Amino acid sequence: MTQAPTAPIRYTPAVEQPEPNEAEVTRELVDTLHGIIETTYKDYGHAVRSVHAKSHALLEGTFEVLGGLPPVLAQGLFAEPGTYQTVLRISTNAGDILPDSVSLPRGMAVKVIGVDGDRLPGSEGDATQDFVMAIGPAFLAPTPAKFLANLKMLAKTTDRVEGVKKVLSATLRAAESALEAVGGESAMLKSMGGQAQTHPAGESYFTQAPLRYGDYIAKLSVVPLSPNFKALAGETVDIGGDPDGLRGAMNEFFGAEGGQWEVRAQLCTDLDKMPVEDASVPWDEEESPYIPVARITVEPQSAWSETRAKVVDDSLAFSPWHGLAAHQPLGGVMRARKPAYEMSSGFRGQHNGCPMHEPKSLETLPA
């Protein structure tokens, strides 16, 4: 096993340095997201998330914290070995529900159930820990202000003609492939429709922005562990003309096979090279590698169904601010997410007549 860094940076409130206009920017960001969710509600007659509206897999499983972790990694949820129930939601990042021929970056939201300890503000009385992740080790924008500028551009594409989006996505995928062929990569191209049509179960997912890791600071990742998940890494999914082809691929795979992902933590060892307030900077894995701290196991199951979506998509909310104080989200992008996620889940609860709830235990999800 890779050794943990010997001198990780200790968390103090001073690692966060909000911009003077952050509150104003955050209000505008929430308003922009509210505009997206209002638009899609008028279209569908049903409220969906303002980002990551379309789910491809809704999975139940177990979250096992590993034993024998060194003290710097035995923190918060990971302080003691144990096994918890978990719900996973795999999605794409748009605020509207698009055909899968519009290929966008994927996300994974993890809800660990039955977690005790001091809670983050707004999650008092809950017993869950959420980790919200996406493809790529860093966020698209460094700060809330840059995030807002990108979001306004993406908001303009909400509710536009799907045919145009399909053609644009195919063009952007070709451009991204050409860029990657010469060793490059563009998060912006991917976010606008240039994501490769790869299998979501073979992807690696990252918190992208940092969070408190007990006494320290970290980013987390979830990566394929079992051989069958690893074999899907980079594998293209042929969706044909199926607008929900990724759901079909996930149902086909998980209907026959289970598997494991590994949860890894990357500790901050240098605040200059591994900044808290600039979420767009990937932390150098040579300086501090991602180290295994837990495993997620899923058994064969129905990955997606309308009845399962009613439980997970309509009645559960995933937010990095649902959890332990030991895993407080850090940095401007994470701070801005708190009111944004609260607005989105509140809107869905009000308009769908199904208030969000945090489970204390998990009944088996419907097939």
Rank of each mutant, 00 (worst) to 15 (best):
residue 1 M to E: 14
residue 1 M to L: 11
residue 2 T to Q: 14
residue 5 P to G: 07
residue 5 P to C: 07
residue 8 P to N: 10
residue 12 T to I: 02
residue 14 A to C: 02
residue 16 E to N: 12
residue 18 P to N: 04
residue 19 E to N: 03
residue 20 P to R: 02
residue 20 P to N: 02
residue 23 A to N: 05
residue 23 A to R: 08
residue 26 T to V: 12
residue 27 R to F: 01
residue 28 E to Q: 15
residue 28 E to R: 15
residue 29 L to P: 15
residue 31 D to S: 14
residue 32 T to M: 09
residue 36 I to E: 06
residue 37 I to L: 11
residue 37 I to Y: 00
residue 38 E to P: 01
residue 39 T to G: 06
residue 46 H to I: 02
residue 47 A to R: 08
residue 49 R to D: 12
residue 51 V to E: 06
residue 73 L to W: 12
residue 73 L to N: 12
residue 79 A to W: 08
residue 82 G to H: 05
residue 83 T to Q: 09
residue 88 L to P: 14
residue 89 R to H: 09
residue 90 I to Q: 06
residue 92 T to V: 09
residue 97 I to E: 12
residue 99 P to C: 08
residue 100 D to M: 04
residue 104 L to P: 04
residue 110 V to W: 06
residue 111 K to I: 03
residue 113 I to K: 01
residue 113 I to N: 00
residue 113 I to E: 00
residue 119 R to Q: 08
residue 121 P to G: 03
residue 123 S to L: 08
residue 124 E to I: 02
residue 124 E to L: 05
residue 127 A to I: 01
residue 127 A to K: 12
residue 129 Q to L: 01
residue 131 F to W: 11
residue 141 A to F: 02
residue 144 P to W: 03
residue 148 L to D: 11
residue 148 L to H: 09
residue 155 A to L: 08
residue 156 K to T: 10
residue 161 V to T: 12
residue 161 V to E: 15
residue 164 V to F: 10
residue 168 L to Q: 15
residue 170 A to V: 05
residue 170 A to R: 15
residue 173 R to E: 09
residue 174 A to L: 11
residue 176 E to C: 03
residue 183 G to H: 03
residue 185 E to G: 15
residue 198 T to H: 14
residue 200 P to C: 04
residue 202 G to L: 08
residue 207 T to P: 03
residue 207 T to L: 02
residue 208 Q to V: 00
residue 208 Q to S: 12
residue 214 G to E: 13
residue 215 D to M: 10
residue 218 A to G: 11
residue 219 K to S: 10
residue 219 K to F: 02
residue 220 L to R: 05
residue 220 L to K: 06
residue 221 S to A: 15
residue 222 V to Q: 04
residue 223 V to P: 10
residue 227 P to T: 01
residue 227 P to I: 00
residue 229 F to S: 07
residue 230 K to N: 10
residue 231 A to I: 01
residue 232 L to R: 10
residue 234 G to V: 08
residue 236 T to R: 15
residue 239 I to E: 09
residue 242 D to I: 06
residue 244 D to F: 13
residue 248 G to H: 15
residue 248 G to T: 14
residue 249 A to K: 09
residue 256 A to T: 13
residue 257 E to G: 04
residue 258 G to F: 04
residue 269 T to P: 00
residue 271 L to G: 08
residue 274 M to A: 05
residue 275 P to W: 06
residue 276 V to G: 09
residue 277 E to A: 07
residue 277 E to K: 03
residue 277 E to R: 03
residue 280 S to Q: 07
residue 289 P to R: 00
residue 293 V to G: 10
residue 294 A to T: 02
residue 299 E to T: 12
residue 301 Q to P: 15
residue 305 S to Y: 07
residue 311 V to W: 13
residue 314 D to T: 12
residue 316 L to Y: 14
residue 320 P to D: 10
residue 324 L to E: 06
residue 327 H to G: 02
residue 329 P to G: 07
residue 330 L to Q: 04
residue 330 L to S: 03
residue 331 G to Q: 05
residue 335 R to S: 11
residue 342 E to Y: 08
residue 343 M to R: 13
residue 344 S to I: 00
residue 346 G to Y: 04
residue 353 G to V: 02
residue 356 M to C: 11
residue 360 K to Q: 15
residue 360 K to C: 09
residue 365 L to R: 09
